[in-house]
Design a protein around this nucleic acid. Structure first.
Length: 504
RNA sequence: GAUCCCAUAGCUCAGCUGGUAGAGCACUUGACUUUUAAUCAAGUGGCCACAGGUUCGAAUCCUGUUGGGAUCACCA
């Protein structure tokens, strides 16, 4: 491939050489940009024209129409596209350079704004310069905007593999995807702001750990050379954050990557971003109120609305979210509360409701499967499902009135789990016995059961205030709010299989 | 990990029951001083993902490999 460069690549190198022969630096150091495309497109009118007599814009050439002694092109900057106009009369000395410019090159233009005969706000160049010569051709997509404002894109770059592997090209060429990432960033800042103004502190805890815990999942393992010891990438944020509550902080949160060594599909990437927050002296009831308010605040700040259309569903975050116990949900969909029922009873219920199951599963697994197949997909409007069986919640405090249950909720929107929260378990005796149960399960072959972490137990023995904890999967929240159906479309660089030796 | 589908020019795609490649855009040359999927004329461009097999002959049929997508399993 290297030896046999395509003609397009060679042509770019020739152009670069020709420019350099003309004494032009194709990679200069700076450019005094004064306006973004958006500044001009939104604010230029006949009345404000005086303010746009001396402006400087910069961006990547996306389209080019060379017409003898005039050239029209569109540049793309962070805010969008704007057309620029060049005329040999206005720039007699440099006009010939344009011949050596290509789609993909980055240029800076000084000039004035005007409106073309066909009504498009355009920058007329008084002078211009090359800011970066591009040596690789971009996938060319052409856009046409119809009278009614709808945009048609021709020959759009849509090979998913190439888009993910060459995201920088995707971001240039597919302008819509860029907005998803802008929204992602705003969602996260909005969440931070919400926590910060309430006095909860953002913290950082280790990603690289000698013991992993806080969730049921298989970890990535790695090795520390100097210590000559096996280490793990964290699977959850929970345990170190709780240690900080023990240490005396009353509200801590972390937004960071977790790593789970499991399958990949459109809702799972091996590394994903999690937010976990722990607030002292609060319980899960308070946390439901806070979670509702948090989501509404983010929705208003970032999208200016509480309503989201996802496929056929219109989601409304405005009304108070439904709160219903897991047991009552089973009554609603299954006719009876299945929690605490025997394996045989679960199987009867599974058969009755056409839930597929494996006869080797235990009662908890069957319960979970009936939930996922029968109930979860129906939880379209925001719903808090509360009060889980103690067996599947080893870090949640037992329910104050309901035997065998814990104070936990999961929030569902559009049939998907969006948040998980408990009144945090702080009774050291109970916590020890729960983790010992997990250890036994691990010995019995449950690869995802939690590892017993003595230091964590020791911290709980020192004493953790009563607290509410909440976890929100950021990627899935962004998917929900931006209407993306694949996690790969909300990650800049989703995990891909390596391509051995092959370029492109 | 399992099943199904996909892989042809830089991009988007044609290519029938086998006869060694085609379009539009991009690129090159020329024309054109308000165009906008600019237009007009003439060109360049391909180990048809990779490796085998069947055949006189394979982009096309068969097998395997690699990568991707979808569904499922594990999970968030």
């Amino acid at each position: 491939m290297r030896e046999n460069k395509s003609e397009l690549l060679l042509r770019r190198e020739e152009e670069l050489a020709e420019l350099e022969e003309l004494g032009i630096n194709a990679y200069p150091y700076s450019f005094a940009k004064t306006h973004s495309s958006k500044d001009i497109l939104e604010n230029y009118t006949q009345e404000t024209a005086e303010e746009f007599k001396e402006i400087a814009v910069a961006g990547r050439i996306m389209t080019m129409r060379k017409m003898g002694k005039a050239v029209f092109l569109h540049i793309l900057d962070q805010e969008g596209r704007i057309q620029c106009y060049f005329n040999k009369k206005l720039t007699p000395d440099s006009f010939a350079q344009l011949k050596l410019y290509d789609i993909g090159d980055i240029i800076g233009i000084k000039g004035e704004a005007f409106t073309t005969r066909t009504g498009e706000t355009t920058v007329k160049a008084h002078s211009f310069e090359l800011l970066c010569k591009s040596l690789q051709p971009l996938p060319i997509a052409k856009e046409e905007t119809l009278e009614d404002g709808t945009k048609i894109v021709y020959d759009s770059f849509k090979d998913k593999e190439l888009r993910y592997r060459k995201r920088y090209v995707d971001l240039i060429v597919n302008s819509d995807i860029r907005d998803v990432f802008v929204k992602r960033s705003k969602i996260i800042s909005s969440m931070r702001r919400y926590f910060d103004i309430r006095g909860w502190m953002e913290v950082e805890t280790p990603i690289l750990q000698s013991l992993y815990g806080g969730a049921s999942a298989r970890p990535f393992t790695t090795h520390h050379n100097t210590l000559d010891t096996e280490m793990f990438m964290r699977i959850a944020l929970e345990l170190p954050l709780k240690k900080l509550l023990v240490g005396g902080f009353e509200g801590v949160y972390e937004i960071s990557k977790n790593f789970r060594n499991e399958g990949m599909d459109k809702t799972h990437n091996p590394e994903f971003t999690m937010m976990e927050i722990y607030v002292a002296y609060r319980d899960y009831n308070w946390c439901m109120d806070m979670t509702e308010d948090l989501l509404r605040t983010i929705a208003m700040e970032v999208f200016g609305t509480h309503k989201f259309t996802l496929g056929e569903n219109e989601i409304d975050l405005e009304p108070k979210f439904r709160r219903i116990s897991m047991g009552d949900l089973f009554v609603e969909y299954c006719g009876e509360d299945m929690i605490g029922k025997s394996k045989d009873e679960m199987i009867i219920a599974a058969k009755k409701h056409n839930v597929e199951y494996d006869p080797t599963w235990n009662a908890m697994k069957l319960l979970d499967e009936i939930f996922s197949q029968l109930i979860e997909k129906n939880l379209i409007q925001p719903t808090f499902m509360t009060d889980f069986p103690v067996e599947i919640s080893p870090l949640a405090k037992k329910h104050r009135t309901k035997d065998g249950l814990v104070e936990r909720f999961e929030m569902f929107i559009n049939g998907q789990e969006m948040a998980n929260s408990f009144s945090e378990l702080n009774d050291p005796r109970d916590q020890r016995s729960r983790l010992e149960d997990q250890s036994r399960a691990k010995l019995d072959g449950d690869e995802e059961a939690m590892v017993l972490d003595e230091d964590f137990l020791s911290a709980i023995e020192v004493g953790m205030p009563p607290a509410a904890g909440l976890g929100i999967g950021i990627d899935r929240l962004v998917m929900l709010l931006t209407g993306q159906s694949s996690i790969r479309d909300v990650l800049f660089f989703p995990q891909m299989k390596p391509r051995g030796g092959i370029e492109k």
